[in-house]
Design a protein around this nucleic acid. Structure first.
Length: 283
DNA sequence: AGCAGCTCCTGTACGC
DNA sequence: TGCGTACAGGAGCTGC
């Protein structure tokens, strides 16, 4: 699923490709629920004739800035993909079906950008320059920004001591950008069991955790994101990222731990699969 | 406060 | 072969 590194990969690629382009035509799919606001008719009308001046990211949200001061905000959900330049024939080769296209932007140079999302967990917003949304306002700190220091990390941990560490990492209001794959990887690499409470963590473990959050996300961005078996992450050209090869625990149940050889186990935490090495990550 | 459990959704994998 | 079912999970929600 797209987490911070995947969204950042899309942002970087897309920024080079679509900056300065002017939207000529806007088409939305039948599933209008994906458009959170404004109402679909207004959403389409307001995008028309706008020029793209830059792309930002906040957590897992992609923010496309327009010359009008408005922002087109995209959350990829589980299976959302942005394809540019879009071509009806070639997307099938990438394993995508055009019936799941939910937004299409045709630019004045006749190239096309498409947002495709099979499971429809993605969300689209078009906000005026002053408009804000709660889901972004409440997001926590960006783990790759300079202000995410060890001291700040400890302070955030201190605000919610009883929470289990996996829940903490997955909760976007503390640190934003980690999803199930990277939360699993970070905990494995730091040798910490996902059910450990924050209160139980030693100073050393907290430091390892801090380092691994930054390391894992940085490596993943360098790899252009990840793609695992059931997951459809593609960059904007439809290519798969290469972080998948570096994954240590996610979806490896039954396979030997890459550190000690013990079979990886899977447990469910808050409805999500957690993959652990029972020897390296003790409760 | 924290968490279990449910919802949204479709494609894939599996058992019979 | 085909049908039913479980599963994948980001985020928002209810309710204990």
């Amino acid at each position: 699923m797209p987490e911070l590194p995947e969204v950042e990969t899309v942002r970087r690629e897309l920024e080079n490709k679509i900056k300065e382009k002017i939207i000529k035509e806007v088409t939305i799919g039948k599933t209008e629920k994906i458009i959170q606001r404004p109402a679909p008719i207004k959403f389409v009308a307001q995008l028309k004739d706008k020029k793209i001046i830059g792309l930002n990211r906040r957590g897992k949200y992609l923010i496309i800035c327009l010359d009008s001061g408005e922002r087109l905000i995209i959350h990829l959900g589980m299976t959302g993909v942005i394809i540019y330049p879009y071509d009806d024939k070639t997307i099938q080769l990438k394993g995508l079906n055009s019936k799941h296209n939910h937004l299409s932007l045709v630019f004045t140079d006749h190239t096309q950008l498409v947002f495709n999302d099979v499971r429809r967990f993605g969300k689209l917003y078009l906000l005026s320059n002053s408009e804000e949304i709660e889901s972004i306002n409440k997001l926590g700190i960006e783990p790759l920004e300079d202000n995410f220091t060890l001291e700040v990390f400890k302070k955030i941990l201190n605000s919610t001591k009883k929470t289990k560490i996996k829940s903490f990492l997955m909760n976007q209001t503390f640190i934003t950008g980690l999803g199930n794959i990277y939360a699993n990887e970070v905990l494995f690499r730091a040798n910490i069991h996902p059910l450990r409470s924050i209160l139980s963590l030693t100073e050393e473990e907290i430091e390892r955790l801090y380092q691994e959050i930054k390391t894992v996300l940085t490596i993943a961005i360098q790899c252009g994101g990840s793609t695992v078996a059931d997951e459809a992450f593609r960059n904007t050209s439809g290519e798969k990222g290469s972080f998948a090869e570096k994954i240590q625990v996610y979806a490896r149940q039954g396979e030997p731990c890459k550190k000690c050889g013990q079979p990886i186990e899977v447990i469910r935490i808050e409805g999500r699969s957690s993959f652990i090495c029972p020897r390296c990550q003790k409760l």
